[in-house]
């Protein structure tokens, strides 16, 4: 019953608008423009990423490539992607670290107590299909493109930082140079011309797999066929398009 479904979706989206009831009437034309964004699903070019946790060696090449490719501040802060190292101890204690985002790799941990298992986890913007950052942006400066990528319009962003608060993954930061929000774009300027995102390009072990989620055949589709997938913080219903394989339950 597609009609019923779209009606239900419309009702849900109306209910999501704070104080919409009053405002839809006043600003009808604008509201329909907003509703038009929902109609994106048909595009086959719909990007996602797979991350094979058991292949990550924590070399930090991706973090460095990301900083270079996207002209990020050189500082040991402001990361569009970073690597976390987990060490789970026999007594259940969990140590996590990410020195300088892992940009210079990792030194051996100064360990106390027996470590049961330890591994690296690359993190980046999850390009959520139900993005809380887009929901809260007051002016429409962050948005989801037709290919599913969440972008920031730095010429339009007012720098209120509500999106940074709304992101459950810590994927956003305020660029100190432009005073606007910034985050991973899947290297939008690369993927739109057929190149891979910089982090995927330089990953030496193929831990990062980039591709089209809806294509008949793509490296990502293959990975999704062959693996058990997990996303970060599924309970928040953000519907990430970054999927992890072999993800440990301790990773948040």
């Amino acid at each position: 019953m597609p009609e019923d479904r779209s009606r239900r979706e419309f009702l849900i989206s109306v209910l999501q608008f704070p104080c919409s009831a009053a405002l839809v009437a006043v600003c009808g034309p604008l509201a329909t423009a907003a509703a038009a964004t929902e109609d994106e699903a048909s595009s086959e070019r719909y990007f996602g990423m797979g991350i094979q946790v058991d292949k990550c060696i924590g070399c930090g090449r991706c973090v460095r490539a990301c900083k270079t490719e996207n002209d990020l501040p050189e500082a040991p802060f402001y990361f569009r992607t970073w690597i976390e190292r987990y060490a789970i101890h026999a007594d259940g204690r969990v140590d996590v670290d990410s020195p300088e985002g892992g940009i210079n790799g990792f030194l051996p941990r100064e360990s106390e107590g027996e470590v049961v298992r330890s591994f690296f986890v690359p993190k980046l913007c999850n390009q959520c299909d139900n993005p809380p950052c887009v929901q809260v942006c007051p002016v429409g400066a962050t948005f989801k493109t037709d290919d599913g990528v969440i972008l920031v319009d730095s010429d339009y962003c007012i720098g209120c930082r509500y999106c940074i608060q709304a992101c459950p993954y810590g994927a956003r930061f305020l660029d100190p140079r432009t005073k606007t929000a910034d985050k991973c774009t899947f290297c939008y300027h690369r993927i739109t011309q057929g190149l891979l995102p910089a982090c995927v390009e330089v990953c030496p072990t193929g831990a990062r797999v980039f591709g089209e989620l809806k294509a008949d055949a793509s490296p990502l589709r293959r990975l999704m066929r062959m693996s058990r997938l997990q996303v970060l913080k599924p309970s928040l219903n953000t519907e990430p398009k970054v999927f992890y394989t072999e993800l440990d339950g301790e990773v948040r």
Binding site: S13, Q16, F17, P18, C19, S20, L23, V24, C27, L30, A31, A34, Q135, V136, C137, P138, V139, G140, A141, Y156, C157, I158, G159, C160, R161, Y162, L174, T178, K179, T180
Partner: peptide
């Protein structure tokens, strides 16, 4: 609120193109 914005000079955008799903956009109204 205005003083804390990264770009106070763009604050008028909240009236130009308010995003109706954003709780903050409703502030102006």
């Amino acid at each position: 609120l205005l003083a804390h914005l990264g770009h106070p000079e763009r604050s008028f955008e909240i009236f130009l193109t308010p995003h109706f799903k954003s709780a903050m956009a409703m502030f102006g109204f």
